[in-house]
Amino acid sequence: MELKGRHTVKANPATLWTMLMDTDTLSKIVPGISRLEKTGDNSYKSVLEIKMGPVSGSFTGNLEMEDIEEQKGFTLKVQQNSSIGNANAAIKIELVPVNADETEVAFDGGAKVTGLLASMGQRILGSVANMLTKQFFANLERELQTRVSA
């Protein structure tokens, strides 16, 4: 499955970068996350609760950031296991300044799923991914708002 898109956020790359590198912030903005634990400089252990149409499950696994370029981007490697199937993804994330106050977040990658996720969830996987992406950016913007008002 292809994961691709772009979204402009009202923040400069430096602010965004700080947020994306902070465990507490990530726990607030990644949809479905119920636990996030830093296990290394650029790696996390996670528990995610996600519902995909007829199938829902609790995913445990690792998130890793590779090819990190400060304030410019990184590749996010996701390996998640659950009783309804496993998911593997590699997503390249780039932060491109639009102007002094805005940054475009571009992401491009693919995910591979197995088990029930593949046999029963495939049909709706794309729309689930779109929804999760939307939620992520909505959460991110809400978090930015909180910071501004604080």
Binding site: K112, T114, A118, S119, M120, Q122, R123
Partner: peptide, 14 residues
């Protein structure tokens, strides 16, 4: 089957 060998329509919804 998709290229990963997953039967992607293994239910009566699919």
């Amino acid at each position: 089957y998709n290229e990963h060998g997953q039967l992607v329509n293994a239910s009566y919804m699919d």
